[in-house]
Each structure stands twice: as structure tokens, then as C-alpha cells.
Design a protein around this nucleic acid. Structure first.
Length: 433
RNA sequence: GGCCCCAUCGUCUAGUGGCCUAGGACGUCACCCUCUCACGGUGAAUACAGGGGUUCGACUCCCCUUGGGGCUACCA
């Protein structure tokens, strides 16, 4: 029998890191096994379910590249089916109505054993577990089914073979098991995977920082890097490999290798990993990815050849895409502001006033304006001025970029262009008293 | 409180009784490369929670303690 798994978000919020990882493990398992990955929308809470949340969840899933099979299943549209199942229970006197709600006659004594793929058998003793022995509400008084009831009905009806969900659902399972029995459904294989934790080891939530997948995508984390990182939270291929392509992930993913311990989400490592992916991207593709971030700042992007050269200059300096506009700001904006600390380097140096002036004139006279030529001529000028590389380059960098940090200086001058470079040098010269 | 789950460097992890004086990665620190930053390279520091067993031999198996987490809804 082929594998069928599902991811079942409730549209009461955005898709967060934890749910995304659950979705990913389901997806990886399905793709690895050549099975099906379904999406079921658990929108039985009419108050809190919102279409905007659904759209964001679907959007996030798509942006991660987690494609699903078949149509979406909406629990809100399946009330008739749940009703039918509930009636069945009432007929068998396994459920009864009370105050407008329907209760299931939960077993009162004995043990319920959850067979879990990762944890093995987990025993629940009803004699000790007071809340488990209470009759489970299966239909609310507003006419909608409760979570535990709908889940069982749907998983059975959809032919789900493996229920892969968060550890926080372990305690729901003994409530659901008797329902399978009562309805004569075949039980799926349960696999409870560990939660993703914040720095303080409590379940990851908003107070731990950004938790929405959308926020990471918008910040310029690459989908493949995100997927790669998430896959390493609670799972590993076992050979110390950290950078794993999507195809390899599908090939190597095994449910049995999933760990039982909660994993702390570490943004630094995600950033590093994203940097690795940025570095591997072909320049044209990286450029395409970067353009939206530039457009957001209204920076000019039409000179493709120039832009690609610029991107190449920054490829090894950015970890996330949104860092690019800030780092490359002085290439796009006409006027620069001096970084205060960096400006002190030349603010009162008369020798530099002369150096800047002569440098501007020299650059202006260059017939060819490429990095190689610029470097040759610049070094000659340094010699003439009796200045060392550092003495000359550092102040010039500040004069031309406003900052103490930039990509390779001569490349920077070349890409900045003759006009911007000379104008800024003269401006700097003039600012020196 | 009750029930349940979990336990290797700060973090993610390798490890399924001897290969472990515990390996990799992020981060940290030092050095190299160097026009700054970054990349890259080299190296260092840092972990089997504690106590009992089992065994010729435990990071690996069992028990207890401790610690952390989750669940305890007519939310999902």
C-alpha cells in the first residue's frame, strides 16, 4: 500500500517555523516513498479561521517548494460526513447528546497503548489519567465537530497511512484511538516528531523573534536553504553532511532517523547556511533574486551588465538577500554620508586634501576605466605621493563610499564609475580645511 | 498538581556494548591570506546531567534522581 501523509494546518495564524518543519517532514517522507502528500485545512473553529491566514499558509508552503497532491480538503465543508459518523456512534449507543453537544462514551478503565514509530509503545493508564476517561465531546453545540473527532474521521476517510505530527499531539492520540475502534476504522501509523524550541528551550513562539516563514522569505532566505536548515532540525543523514540539496534530501530522508529530542532553532546557523547557498548561486540567478530588494529602495536596476558585476562583488559578503541594498547603497545613491568614525581618518589631513585632488584628476584622465588599469595607475600615484597602500586606500575608500568597509577598493572605483568617483573625491578634498 | 515525552560541546548533531583519550557543523578565540570587510585556510577551547545496576567491558541496555519540555478546552 502506498504511503499517504497529510499536513493539517488550521488557518488561525501564519505558517510558523515549527509547523513548516512538520509539513516538510511529511512532504519529504511522501516524496521519498513515492507516496502522496495531502493538505487538509482544519477550519472547524469558525471564529478564529480566516481566509487571509489560509492564503498566507499556502503561500508559505509554495515558497518553500512544498507542493501537495490533490485538492485541499476543508473540514468546514465535510460536516455532513462527520454527522454521519457521529450518528453511527449514537445508533450503537457509543455516543449521546447532552446540552446540544454530542459526547463519545470514552473507555473508563484499562490501558490505551499508542504505538509510535519513533517512541515505541506509549502507555496511558485510564485509571490514573482522569481527563482521558472523561467523555470526549465530538460535536460542539454550534454544530461543528471537535478537532479530535474530525481528525480521526478524515485521516481514515483520506486513507492516511502515516500520521506525522508534533510531539504535542502525543496526548491527543489516546483520545483518538478509541474512536478508531468505535468507528471500525483502520489505524494509521503514528509518528510524533519533536518540537522546535526557542533559545530558552520552550516551544518556539513569537517572543523568540521571527517565527513566520513569510518573514524569512521576505528577509531574503533562499527556499532551498530554509528547507535544508529545517530538515536538519531533528534529523540528519548520518554522515556529517550539512549542505544537502532538495533532491538529496528526498533521496536520503528516513523517518526512522528522526530524533526524539526537541531542537533549538539557531538563526546564526541558518544565516551561515543561507550564505553557503548564496555563494553557490549563478550570478544571473542571484541578480534576479536581488532585484526586488533593490526595487523596494527604488534603486536603478536596468543596467544588467553593470548590476551583475556588482552582484559578483557582493556575493561573498551577504548572507541574506536583504543585506544587499544596505551594503551596496553607495553605488546607487548619488550622495553619500560619511560614517563619523571613518571620516575622522581624513577630516583634518592636509596631505590627503592634495592626494584626493590629484587622484580625482588622474582618474578623470583615464581612457580605460577598469579595475586593473585603475589599480596600476593608483599604485603609481601612491609612489609619487610617497604613501603606502593603506595610507592611501583607506581614506580614499571613505571619501568615495562614506564607509570604512567596502568590497575590493579598485573594483569599487571601477563600478562606481568615473563621474561618481571623481566627484566624491573632490568633495572630500574640499571638506578638508 | 496529574499524565506523557525527552536528556552527547552554548546550539544543531554523529554515535545503536569494545572502532570514543567521543567525530562534524554553527558560534567563540587565535593565526594565515589581505587595501577594509567578507570569503577561504589552519589551529584552539567546550559535551556523554548525577547515582545505582547489567556486563569481561558502557555515551550506548535497565532503574532511580535531577533537569527541561508538552498536554491537561464544546482551540487546533
Amino acid at each position: 500500500m502506498s504511503v499517504k501523509v497529510r499536513f493539517a494546518p488550521s488557518p488561525t495564524g501564519y505558517l510558523h517555523i515549527g509547523s513548516a518543519r512538520t509539513a516538510l517532514f511529511n512532504w519529504l517522507y511522501a516524496r521519498h516513498e513515492g507516496g502522496k502528500f495531502y493538505l487538509r485545512i482544519e477550519d472547524t473553529d469558525r471564529e478564529r479561521s480566516k481566509d487571509e491566514f489560509l492564503q498566507e499558509i499556502l503561500g508559505s508552503l509554495k515558497s518553500l517548494g512544498l507542493d501537495w497532491d490533490g485538492d485541499l480538503v476543508f473540514q468546514s465543508r465535510r460536516t455532513d460526513y462527520y454527522r454521519k459518523m457521529a450518528d453511527l456512534l449514537v445508533q450503537k449507543d457509543m455516543a449521546y447528546g447532552e446540552g446540544g453537544a454530542l459526547h463519545f462514551r470514552s473507555p473508563k478503565t484499562g490501558k490505551i497503548i499508542v504505538q509510535d514509530l519513533l517512541h515505541g509503545p506509549i502507555e496511558f493508564d485510564l485509571d490514573q489519567h482522569l481527563s482521558l476517561a472523561e467523555d470526549l465531546v465530538i460535536f460542539k453545540s454550534d454544530g461543528s465537530p471537535t478537532y479530535n473527532f474530525a481528525v480521526v474521521c478524515d485521516d481514515a476517510d483520506m486513507g492516511i497511512t502515516h500520521v506525522i505530527r508534533g510531539d504535542d499531539h502525543i496526548s491527543n492520540t489516546p483520545k483518538q484511538l478509541p474512536l478508531y475502534e468505535a468507528l471500525g476504522f483502520q489505524k494509521p501509523i503514528f509518528c510524533h516528531i519533536p518540537l522546535i524550541l526557542g533559545e530558552d528551550r520552550s516551544r518556539m513562539s513569537k517572543r523568540h523573534g521571527a517565527t513566520a516563514i513569510r518573514e524569512y522569505v521576505e528577509a531574503g532566505y533562499l527556499p532551498d536553504a530554509l528547507v535544508n536548515y529545517l530538515s536538519l532540525l531533528g534529523w540528519s543523514p548520518g554522515n556529517n553532511q550539512e549542505i544537502i540539496s532538495r533532491q538529496e534530501l528526498i533521496q536520503k530522508f528516513e523517518l526512522k532517523r528522526v530524533l526524539k529530542t526537541g531542537a533549538v532553532f539557531n538563526k546564526e546557523k541558518l544565516e551561515w547556511l543561507n550564505g553557503q547557498y548564496v555563494r553557490k548561486l549563478p550570478i544571473p540567478e542571484l541578480t534576479d533574486n536581488l532585484i526586488p530588494y533593490l526595487e523596494k529602495r527604488r534603486y536603478k536596476t536596468e543596467d544588467r551588465a553593470w548590476l551583475e558585476r556588482l552582484v559578483l562583488l557582493f556575493q561573498e559578503r551577504i548572507f541574506t538577500l536583504n543585506q544587499f541594498p544596505d551594503l551596496a547603497q553607495f553605488f546607487f545613491e548619488e550622495n553619500i554620508e560619511y560614517n563619523e568614525e571613518a571620516h575622522k581618518e581624513f577630516a583634518k589631513d592636509a596631505r590627503l586634501k592634495n592626494a584626493f585632488t590629484r587622484y580625482a584628476a588622474m582618474l578623470e584622465s583615464l581612457p580605460v576605466f577598469d579595475a586593473k588599469t585603475i589599480e596600476e595607475k593608483s599604485r603609481a600615484l601612491m609612489k609619487d605621493l610617497e604613501m603606502s597602500g593603506k595610507e592611501f586606500i583607506h581614506p580614499c575608500r571613505v571619501a568615495v563610499t562614506g564607509r570604512a568597509i567596502s568590497p575590493s577598493f579598485f573594483e569599487t572605483i571601477a563600478l562606481l564609475g568615473k563621474e561618481k568617483a571623481t566627484r566624491r573625491l573632490r568633495q572630500a578634498a574640499n571638506s578638508i580645511k
